[in-house]
Design a protein around this nucleic acid. Sequence first.
DNA 1: ATAAGAATTGAACATTGTTTAATTTACTAT
DNA 2: ATAGTAAATTAAACAATGTTCAATTCTTAT
Lengths: 229, 229
Amino acid sequence: MAKNLKSIQRREREREELREQILDVAMSIFTKEGYEAVTIRRIADEVEYTPGALYSYFGDKEDIVFALVVRASKKLNALFQSLEALPHPLERLWATGRAYMRFAMENPVEYDLLFIMSAPIQKMAECDFDETRTAFHILRKTVQECMEQGFLPRADADAAAFAMWSFVHGSVSLMIRKRLAAIPEEKYDDLLQGAFNFLMNAMMPRHQETPAIMLSAPKVLAKKKIGKK
Amino acid sequence: MAKNLKSIQRREREREELREQILDVAMSIFTKEGYEAVTIRRIADEVEYTPGALYSYFGDKEDIVFALVVRASKKLNALFQSLEALPHPLERLWATGRAYMRFAMENPVEYDLLFIMSAPIQKMAECDFDETRTAFHILRKTVQECMEQGFLPRADADAAAFAMWSFVHGSVSLMIRKRLAAIPEEKYDDLLQGAFNFLMNAMMPRHQETPAIMLSAPKVLAKKKIGKK
DNA sequence: ATAAGAATTGAACATTGTTTAATTTACTAT
DNA sequence: ATAGTAAATTAAACAATGTTCAATTCTTAT
């Protein structure tokens, strides 16, 4: 009766490992070949199990996709939390915007899962997803502080925070979903940076001195400009 | 040999009618039950033909979806063109933004097809789609005029136009794809209007007198507030 | 070694998009 | 009117999808 604790723990750990491996594989296929290629049979092939086996790890395909959303959400949240420490609210706002755009452009599949795809919205609604909710509240708080300290025109903080989120989301999602036929892809980075600068500068009260960070800011995607050569 | 012109014309017209009916039905299913419900067999059922028959009208399913995109594109373009006549560039900019948001919120399926879905992007890339391209150029021209007349801070017109498009796209697509858990749906309209006002006001040079239209502007989605009672 | 329990398989289902040979329909020429 | 022809439509099949479940294998405690 009294089962061996060691083996039951090990079995649980192995189950968890396979679960993670399934998600790894799903993500990898998604990234390399697009969502249509993410198939139960294809995943099963790559983890060397039978399709049916996956159903003892996930209820259905949507559960797999949703698990990917949760992963992506944690990744983005960690990024945001690392910025909360910045004391200057305008610098924080600036850095958050840049980090958001950069995350999206460097992790388009994660971004797609989090903010564009319709596949997981059913289950996202059920879990009602605190992550993005708190992210928005943090953004609003930052905006509010900016207003209080005179870096932004005083106005409804909800509206202003939503406006900024809308801008960054809009710009990256137009790029990710290739709805920018008017602009060649090489110019995406410059455009992103230029539009962001334009908005931030435009919003700053005229008498306000432009903070140093806004003048010396590197490009949004400055770092790893891999491939493309 | 010399075929009867009348009947060949009529056959062509009938073909065209069925083609349109297929698109009507597809759009109707999409609107009422979502994209997953839009199935070749389902469409065939509703037009009272056999699934195979549809393939003499469209090459494949993606062709059908793309035809829906073309339809939506014409609809949106007509809307834009009706605004080109406005002489005052800031008023035109303002009206265009409101019209865009309103189009999206009142025609979420069309908007999805045009700017969010990934299904038709293959064929959109092939046709390289002049519609949205010229729409962007028109927007840029309006922005440019606003800058020249002192209604917007002088800056790169491409970046500024892109920033504005990004904002409106971002806001409506977050709503359409239900990524706004932080905000109850009843507030969508107010938020849209508030964010738009915030951005427009923030961008206007401080010394500039606020044009009348910006003060008296009705809500973005003022008109038909159907249902929801 | 054996029994119990968990994990995995294999085979089946229903549903998808798509193709194609066969059939029906519509129309022209006699 | 009739036969022939070209177009339109069907019916049936295919492969691939998500999913289920009885049968089998594997693991582990006794």
